[in-house]
Design a protein around this nucleic acid. Structure first.
Length: 590
DNA sequence: CTTAGGG
DNA sequence: CCCTAAG
């Protein structure tokens, strides 16, 4: 059974293409463009910046800043929904109420933060074990224009469950009276909502109720047995740092290493921008909860105040045509996890923004909007945006790994975008939706759409596709560690880059001075016990680079400068231990 | 799982 | 950072 479903992830009109893995040798050398020259409207940077803001939103939630509230919590409108018994399809919304969660919870639910001890939702604390979330792909048409604004995710409490699929609530088992707490990010009450063009981002928490069933907890045991099932419950490579802490060291997302493109219907290609140009009264409101699109700060920096500014309103982004494929005998729970994984994988790896004018990709980032033909006079559908992968197939130039792209730093976004845009042949690719593929062991089950076909405009069957992403649920991750089966790590995403800070370097140096090189696990335990993201391998690697850094001239060094004093200690320590190890060797030899 | 190194 | 051969 091939399930296809367009995921409404709070995005509208943007294509989110594949996020392939770049060759290592090509990493980290993306050109860094200078900001922007005076008097020149770097339209694309602006737009990219806007998009970046959008993307960042999920990572960098806007705290409520009610003048009266010191409450650091994030507010949401809570809509209680219930499934209609027989019709059993549509969710019925109940009156709203105010809900809130703390930042940790917010970030966690967005898959942007590692699990923590506990989370709080509406004042109720949930232990990590009981806190999980799953993607809910239900779509809702809440706006007058019939634009869907579905979105993400979340379940609070292990007993929850339910996911939506094609506007239907699908449960792991017959259910009644299910309650879904739909938390809508709340617009700041104090802010005049002059903007009506931007949809509110909605964050859906699948709330628990007394009678909800247990969520599937044994995803990895669902190894497909169907001959035609394309999804294999492959164990995720949810790496654990250390055995003794395994159950708590699992990160929210993992990436797949393999991403394949799938040709899609041309009918839904790239240029489906939504109302990019809005009447003056629809000026983007940076305070809008919707990802702070076009915040004044963003636009202001990019566009000279005096020029004829363009008022762009990017309502939302959407992850279009994301295909998944699962065997019929897979559980609903596994389906949810699959979708969740597919979405987070894409969103978690950083994206570029592509610009389409009249359906044509605009590659020259230095042209002004006017030169490009983008003007306020244009009616909708003339300008389109595309989310492009940070890294794509071989044809792509080297990119930096900077994860900040995801967080929306315009500079990063711009720089990646620039490199990408200048590359021929990327537009065609980016026009297509991402396809996650999780094949069988021999790759026989991989659905690897022909890129060639895509490029020449062939439109494969709509049902072609797919993927399968190892199902992963936060819950399963938090409670039931997967046993990683070797051989199925093709879909593991690269970890985000996290440069060592000077204090970290200091700690590392100190530990190595004491323990010596070659005892990285001890070093880890001694100096980085609490830093879950630093593995002993990382420390070993860092030491390696430190030694290298210390040996090269200061001019050749990059990144945050490390005090020379520390580098000197690095060299001294390195020399000392090298010598010591050498003597050891001799001793053994003799 | 840890190390040690190359990529 | 990733990937892995070795131990």
């Amino acid at each position: 059974m091939v399930l296809q479903r367009r995921l409404e992830y709070g995005f509208n009109g943007y294509r989110v293409p594949e996020v392939p893995r770049a060759s290592r040798s090509a990493r980290g050398r993306g050109p860094i463009r200078s900001k922007f020259e005076a008097n020149q409207i770097h339209a694309f940077e602006s737009l990219a910046s806007v998009a970046g803001k959008l993307l960042q939103e999920s990572k960098d939630p806007l705290p409520t800043n009610d003048s009266c509230g010191k409450d650091p919590h994030f507010k949401f409108d809570v809509i209680t929904k219930s499934e209609q018994q027989d019709t059993g399809n549509l969710l019925k919304e109940e009156p709203c109420e105010l809900g809130s969660c703390d930042e940790e919870t917010f970030l966690y639910v967005h898959g942007l933060q590692e699990p923590r001890e506990s989370y709080t939702l509406n004042g109720v604390s949930h232990s990590q074990e009981n806190f999980s979330y799953e993607i809910n792909s239900v779509s809702k048409s809440l706006d007058s224009e019939g634009i869907n604004i579905g979105k993400g995710l979340g379940a609070v409490d292990s007993r929850i469950f339910s996911g939506s699929y094609s506007n239907k609530v699908v449960n792991d088992s017959p259910l009644s009276g299910e309650t879904i707490v739909d938390l809508l990010k709340r617009k700041r009450a104090t802010e005049p909502s002059q903007d009506t063009s931007i949809k509110e981002e909605r964050i859906e928490f699948l709330g628990s109720s007394e009678d909800v069933m247990e969520v599937e907890e044994r995803p990895h045991e669902l190894v497909s047995s169907g001959h035609d099932g394309k999804i294999r419950q492959v164990n995720r490579n949810w790496r654990t740092c250390y055995a003794h802490q395994r159950s708590q060291k699992i990160y929210p997302f993992k990436k797949r290493k393999l991403f394949n493109w799938s040709p899609l219907n041309t009918s839904d290609r790239g240029c489906n921008c939504e109302d990019i140009f809005n009447s003056p009264d629809k000026i983007v409101n940076g305070d809008n909860c919707c990802a702070a699109v076009g915040s004044s700060s963003t636009m202001g920096q990019q566009v000279p105040p005096k020029s004829n500014n363009l008022k762009l309103s990017i309502k939302s982004f959407k992850v279009p045509e994301l295909f998944i494929e699962v065997p019929t005998n897979a559980t609903v729970g596994s389906l949810k996890r699959t979708v969740m994984e597919a979405v987070t994988s894409i969103l978690g790896d950083g994206l570029h923004i592509g610009i389409l004018v009249q359906g044509k990709k605009v590659r020259d980032d230095n042209k002004t909007l006017l030169q490009t033909g983008i003007s306020q006079d244009d009616k909708r559908h003339n300008l389109g945006f595309i989310l492009e992968p940070k890294r794509a197939k071989l044809t792509y130039p080297p990119f930096s790994e900077d994860p900040s792209l995801v967080s929306g730093r315009s500079q990063e976004l711009t720089r990646h975008s620039t490199s990408l845009e200048s590359q021929p042949g990327t537009s065609d690719v980016s026009m297509n939706p991402p396809v996650l593929s999780l094949g069988g062991r021999n790759g026989r089950d991989f659905k690897v759409p022909s890129l060639a076909g895509t490029l020449i405009g062939k439109t494969p069957p709509t049902c072609q596709a797919l993927v399968a992403v190892p199902p992963v649920s936060m819950k399963a991750l938090a409670v039931v560690p997967f046993h990683r089966k070797s051989g199925h790590q093709e879909y593991v995403q690269r970890r985000i880059r996290r440069p060592f800070s000077v204090p970290e370097v200091e700690a590392l140096v100190q530990a190595v001075e004491k323990l010596g090189t070659g005892r990285w696990r001890d070093v880890k335990l001694r100096a980085f016990e609490s830093e879950k993201h630093r593995t002993y391998v990382d420390l070993k690697d860092k030491w390696k680079t430190l030694v290298h850094t210390a040996r090269i001239s200061p001019q050749q060094r990059r990144g945050e400068p490390v005090p020379q004093e520390l580098l000197d200690r690095v060299l001294a320590t390195h020399a000392y231990w090298s010598h010591r190890h050498a003597k050891q060797q001799v001793k053994v030899a003799v």
